[in-house]
Amino acid sequence: MLLYLLRRVVYAVPIALAVGFVCFMLVQIAPGDPINAIVPPDAPADVVAQVRKDYGLDKPLPVQFGLWISKVAVGDLGRSLATGRPVWSDLRSAIGNTLTLAFAASAIGFTLGCVLGGLAGTFRGSAIDRGAVGLAVAGVSVPHYWLGMVLVVVFSVQLNWLPAMGAGPGGSSDWGWDWEHVKHLVLPAVTLSVIPMGIVTRTVRGIVAEIMNQEFVTALRGKGLTRWGVFRHVVKNAAPNALAVMGLQLGYLMGGSILVETVFSWPGTGLLLNSAIFQRDLPVLQGTILVLAMFFVALNLCVDLVQTSLDPRIKRA
């Protein structure tokens, strides 16, 4: 068990390096000279030559990768072409906002998903089951950026209950949990929550239905355990797998919030990516993708470790 955990941690290192390599290659596959990612296009030729030398862009690709990764390792993601500020300084507040949004969305999505999936799995074939399955399919098939627009039309344009964009007073860096801020969070969080809602409902329904069919549940009922008591046993059996799916969903939300952030002008990593794409600000694009992907790798690892330690049935050598 301990050996497995250790091996899993060690295995994450080459994955993280490979992810770094893919992010490094992003600038290489971009059309044009990678030097354009560092100096503005109208820079004089001698400056370009100097920068090319300073950045090691005249060296072979593997050497360049080594130089780049050693800078990244100490937190230097380069400078933004558009603002001239270090990428990390913009990224820091954006990550905080994306995390806020992702946690709010997962709180909504996971709660609904567990309740709907649990009910559907327990009462298979009932009206509740059909309703939950229908909602789940709708949740995973809806283009969520469109759902965001519909919610804005209903709740901002028609009813004028909730703001349509932004993150409240203080802009991107001054988040607080008071109503003035939270009312800006409601619509984007609900919009983003439909995907995890759908997936968690499906998963939990499947897991619960499988457990309910097992003999030990019949035995528990047979020995006269109350409904609540049986429920506790089912939850204990379903928890490891359900938690694993939810953990990964949180990661998908972090990476997938770009569309929703664009709709609501939510000042997170997605909006940062969006403006980086439009300004062809490759260092910001690269840095943001790298940090989000590394977060996902770390989350994957955590999910695996938690699942292994929670579930006594998993005994991987």
Partner: peptide, 21 residues
């Protein structure tokens, strides 16, 4: 494939097409 699995799919799509233009 493990390497590509380390990226959420939306992020990977945005990253590649964002870099390519």
């Amino acid at each position: 494939t493990d390497i590509f699995y380390a990226f959420p799919s939306v992020l990977l799509a945005v990253a590649i097409s964002g870099a390519l233009g």
